[in-house]
Structures are given as structure tokens and as C-alpha cells.
Nucleic acid binder design. Structure first.
Lengths: 230, 230
DNA sequence: GAAAAAAACTGATCTAGATCATAAAAAAAA
DNA sequence: TTTTTTTTATGATCTAGATCAGTTTTTTTC
């Protein structure tokens, strides 16, 4: 099957111009109610079900946004630097985190007080409109990921994520791979063994090259074909 | 597996108070730029990839919101009356429908000019905030559906949709069933044959009763268990 | 450095659910 | 009413991918 518009990758590379809409006063208010925290690799920034007190802005690093239950996780998206996370928690009557967020690598995160953020949303229409725009783009990305994860087969899903990392996260055909095979499995919603097998296939077919923790994408065209074929 | 907060059903029964935030003037502007259209069963209200010119409000009836490609559809949500559809198309630089919408039954739909809608979003902060709230609730519902469709097994998924129809669409333990087995299959992301088998099981086990097109839910408790067990 | 633990790998087996094929029942058309 | 088409039903087969079990390699710890 072909996924014309869609991809398991949910990263949309656009400058985050949301905060440009703020007045000087509002900007100051936000600044006064923001703290910057450095998280180590694997740390939880936000736990599903806990009180949601911040909007999170990934200044540096890489994180995953995911749903959990007793037995398994579903990664909704990976969040590279410049991502804004936590907006979906903002709706009437809600004050808890709707998902968990954890870092893949050491990350610097701005934590913005959610009350202040909400207050500005309610008074600055341009800001609220931009926020709605961002949320809408986000929803579409999730739709695409949903579609692909429920339609594509294993090889397509792994090809997808490799291209995503190359094109949108690291923006280089060779990159320092932050994911273990089991993290990759979680990300593609497949078993670790299957990830290993598919990656092995890709290596044997000369599509990728792995040296220690560095992965090089040798044949994007073929990966693209595999991704879009399913 | 248990889906504590989540469900394949994406209907959130809350009064749509979005338009209460409008000034009289704005309300008039919306009214002047709204047309009401009646769609027959199975008609397409909005086609993925076409120009998105309206926000759709389901006044009466039942519709599905779905992604399509050459081979298969993914139903994102079912939209009963009082649903507002089409917001995700609103983001910078976009003017096409991100999904398709089609009716399950004859439906009356208000088509609101998207330009006017956007214009008000950009000037009325309360309105934009409410719209963001609605979008956020919607995104969470989709997350839940995503999680459940990728985790629950067949019986759980069918139990889910039956409870959803009972509790949130028809609000009655007995209702006139608008779905064929193959529509149900599309809705639960499974094959028609599997739906038939599962429905047969439920009938044989006395959980439901089907007489012509009317379905009666006889044992909600058990269906709930099946739904949450997976 | 050696020992322990974690991650990567590989083959064998298993299974949920799709697909296929064919029949029966129901609905629509003539 | 009869014929045609659509929907429902049911058993047989097939398969993608998970699970299991074991080995090798890499990383971490001591």
C-alpha cells in the first residue's frame, strides 16, 4: 500500500513561531514563569495520569511522547529540539497529563507554567490561533502515523523510521544512533526480534551501514520504495 | 490488556458551547456564511485531498471521518449529531481536506465558510481558546482509539464499538443498527469475516440480540469486561 | 584485567486473524 | 412472483509476525 501524504514519522520541520505573537508584556510573563531543566537520558519529563503543570518546550535533545499501560507503550511521536509538548492536556475540566514524555538522550527542556500559558491563550487571539494551527498540524501527523502503523508491514515501518531520522531528526545521511533495537521496536510497534531481522536484511542488502552506534543511510531511494510500498 | 482511559470510541458527549463565545455580530456573520445541506446515506460530505472550503457541523445524522488510500480506509472517528468536523484542515499554508467524511445515514449538515470561521478565530480569543479545547479533546480521543486498535484483539474491539454505540451514539440498550458487517469491519479495522464470527459468538453467548436491523445489548457488564480485557 | 549484565542475533515454533472458497439467507430489482 | 445482487455465514487454509529458546557479542561493573 502507498501512503501518499502520510508517514509514521510525525516530525514537521517548521520554525515554531508561536511565541512571536506575544506582546512584550506577555513575553515577560512567560519568561518569569518558565524554568529550564536538564534531563538525563531515559528520564521521564511528564508522567501520564499525573497533574499537568507545564507546557514543555524541548530546547535541546530528543524525547518520546507515548501512552502507557500495564503491558505496553504506544509511542505517539518523537520530539526533537524545538518541539512544544503538552498542549493536548489543555481542555475544559482537565488537569492531568494525557501522555507520558521521556528523553532518549540528555535534553534541555523549558517548562512553562500551564496556567500562565492558558491565561494568554484566552486573551491573545493571534496566539491562540497559532496554537490551534500547531495542534492541527500535530493531529494530522498523528493521523498519518496511525494510518501507517495500522497498514504498513514491518519492512516499511522500519524504512520509514530510518528515513525520518535521516531527514527530519539528524538531517544527515550518517548519524549517531540513539536507539537500541528494543527502542526501535517500541517506536515501530513491532517485536525486538523483528526489528533485528529487518535491520539485518537492510544491512545485508547494502541499504544501511552500522558501525558501532553510527548509522549511515546508503540507499535512500530503495528505503523510500520500501516505505511507500508497505 | 486494560485500556483505563481509552476506548476505540471517540465520541465525547459534551455540549458544543463553542458558538456561545461569539458576539452578536460574529454570530450573524457565521449565519450569513452557513448553508444547510441534507446528505443521503453513504454520500461524501468532504473528500480527502480536495479543497477544504467548510467547517462541517452535523446537525442531525451520523457520519464517519476517515483516511483513504488505494486499498483501504482507516476510520478516525464516527461523528454523531452535534459534531464539528474539519478543524484540523486549518493550519498555515493548508487549504485541502486532510480526511474524508461520509454519512452512515441521511444527515443534515451545516456548512460554515472556513474563511469566515478562521477570521473569527484570529480575532476572538475566547472563541479560539474554545476551539483549541475542542481540538485537544479530539486529539486525546484519537490517541485512545489509536492505542486500542493497535493493542486490543478482535473481541475487545467489537465489544468496544457496541458499547460505544449503546452509550454514546444511540444512548439506549436497544437501537436501530445502521452498520453492515463490512462497515463494522472498517470501523474496527478487521476483516468482515472476523466481525461476523465475533458477532456470532456474542449472539450465541447471549450478550446481544439481533432482530432484523435492531440490536439489543443484553449484557453490558460482560461486554465491558471483554472490552477492557482486550 | 575478569565477571556479570545487557544487548544483538538466530533458528524453531506458534498463533491470531486474514484470506479463500462456497453456501445460505436476505434484500433489491425486474 | 422470480431473478439477481448483496449480505451473512461457515469451514479450510495460509501467513505475517510474535513468542520462545538459545547463542554470541557488546557493554558495564567490579
Amino acid at each position: 500500500m502507498t501512503c501518499k501524504f502520510t508517514n509514521t514519522c510525525t516530525i514537521f520541520n517548521k520554525e515554531l513561531s508561536l511565541f512571536d505573537e506575544l506582546t512584550e508584556e506577555e513575553q515577560k510573563l512567560i519568561e518569569e514563569n518558565t524554568v529550564t531543566v536538564t534531563y538525563k537520558k531515559g528520564e521521564t519529563i511528564c508522567k501520564q495520569g499525573s497533574f499537568s503543570s507545564n507546557i514543555m518546550y524541548i530546547k535541546e535533545g530528543l524525547a518520546k511522547v507515548y501512552l502507557e499501560n500495564d503491558t505496553s507503550n504506544l509511542v505517539l511521536k518523537i520530539a526533537p529540539k524545538n518541539s512544544l509538548i503538552g498542549m493536548p492536556s489543555i481542555y475544559e475540566g482537565n488537569n492531568i497529563c494525557v501522555y507520558s514524555v521521556a528523553t532518549y538522550v540528555e535534553s534541555i527542556v523549558n517548562l512553562i507554567d500551564i496556567k500562565v500559558f492558558q491565561q494568554i491563550l484566552q486573551t491573545n487571539a493571534k496566539f491562540a490561533f497559532k496554537a490551534l494551527n500547531i495542534t492541527n498540524e500535530n493531529i494530522i501527523q498523528i493521523y498519518g502515523r496511525f494510518f501507517c502503523l495500522s497498514n504498513k508491514q514491518l519492512h516499511g515501518r522500519v524504512a520509514d523510521i530510518l528515513l525520518c531520522l535521516k531527514d527530519r531528526v539528524y538531517k544527515n545521511h550518517s548519524f549517531d544512533f540513539a536507539f537500541s533495537r528494543s527502542e526501535l521496536a517500541e517506536l515501530t510497534n513491532m517485536s525486538t526480534e523483528s526489528v533485528i531481522r529487518v535491520m539485518k536484511n537492510f544491512k545485508d542488502d547494502g541499504l544501511i551501514l552500522q558501525k558501532d552506534k553510527t548509522i549511515e543511510i546508503l540507499n535512500s531511494d530503495m528505503l523510500n520504495k520500501i516505505s511507500s510500498f508497505g
